[in-house]
Design a protein around this nucleic acid. Structure first.
Lengths: 210, 210
DNA sequence: GCGAAAGATGACCGCCCGGTCATGTTGACC
DNA sequence: GGTCAACATGACCGGGCGGTCATCTTTCGC
């Protein structure tokens, strides 16, 4: 929030450079993953490395900003879908968009898929996304379209899993995730299956060490 | 193959050191992922770094050896299950073991989950695993226990997806993958669901560039 | 036991990374 | 258009990485 045009009285070129930087970083992280170097990002933006560190104190800060922007977009999508008549179709649409976003962004996958999430802002943004997805899921449950023991956080976590399933095929069949999305959705529809084992997660664990 | 006791006429300490190295590398990759340094592995094995490079010409070679050993274990598990009476139970058992192995090995997850697999031996070992899983899957299909449009490679790929789904919870709930294994299996059981979109993969794409 | 060959060692190399800082440049305001 | 603070720059730093190699140590056939 309060990102697009930050604090007042900023020089025009700084605002412009910030845009260049954010765009370049978004593309670089998406294509190359979190291990892309700050030098590469600077080069893509047409800036010097030092300038990048003037806008973001560390690589982690920059990565967090980009990830938050992505997560906010996803949360917005979910928000826009909560009023749909067919809740199951809305849920399906949300999952489609979610996996599409993941499939197009390597860094996003890597950050989401870390065993322990260092970036606390990202962690809570995911939890917020889980809550928004919960309202979507609850409506689909009430309409009897999906099983009763699936939560919003389940849905969010499943996005990463569905995409991951198709990752080994990504280069040859970029749309393969659709196959596994449908397979998973059929699992969600199993309304009279035995109750799922293991309680669902709500909050994500913080980073411990490593 | 022909790994345990390589070529004849090797010095006794070399054989011993090779064991120490393989054990240390297996543990280090499992705990720390592929980014663990060769120095760290050498230290864990109680060897000098140079010795590690005498046994394996590059880090990639060492990683490939460890991954192949893991994949062979999994293929062995699948092989042992093909004769079970209840094919669906056998398939379920195979998937349980597979996800357990993934959950216990960070490097394995990372290698399997790369968009493009550099290590060609690992790639073909996965394809072999897919073929073995196919015999398991075919029997479950014939028994009418699972839907008709799921292949062995689907099963193998799903292992990575199921584990990935639970990764964000791993630190707090190490068994969370069981929840998503059951959910996925319910999807596999949806015998009268509409046919899955997008054709299944059989072979994995080679690395292109990146 | 002894000699020679195979193996083990760790200092060393070049590379690239995230991050810093003295210096040069630019834009906003009067 | 002059002034100055804010901003941009890229050479530079310390550190860790994969990998090498001259040197020392161990094993094994005799």
């Amino acid at each position: 929030m309060t990102e697009t045009t930050a604090a007042p009285s900023q020089r025009a070129d700084m605002v412009r450079n910030r845009r260049l930087l954010l765009d370049a970083a978004t593309a670089a992280f998406a294509e190359c993953g979190v291990d892309v170097s700050m030098g590469e990002i600077a080069q893509r933006a047409g800036l010097a490395k030092g300038t990048v560190f003037r806008h973001f104190a560390s690589k982690e800060d920059l990565l967090a900003a980009i990830m938050l922007q992505l997560l906010d977009r996803l949360t917005g999508t979910a928000d826009r879908l909560v009023d749909a008549d067919d809740a199951a179709a809305a849920l399906h649409e949300f999952m489609t968009v979610g996996v599409e976003v993941l499939a197009a962004d390597r860094a996003f996958c890597e950050v989401i898929g870390r065993p322990s999430l260092q970036l606390s802002q990202v962690r809570s943004a995911i939890e917020r996304l889980g809550e928004t997805a919960e309202t979507l899921t609850a409506r689909a449950r009430e309409q009897g379209a999906i099983r009763g023991d699936v939560t919003g956080m389940d849905i969010v976590l499943l996005l990463g899993g569905i995409h991951q399933t198709a990752v080994p095929l990504l280069a040859a069949q970029p749309q393969a995730w659709r196959r596994y999305l449908e397979l998973t959705f059929d699992g969600l529809r199993a309304t009279n299956a035995p109750r799922l084992p293991h309680p669902p997660g709500r909050r994500l664990p913080a980073a411990d060490s490593d």
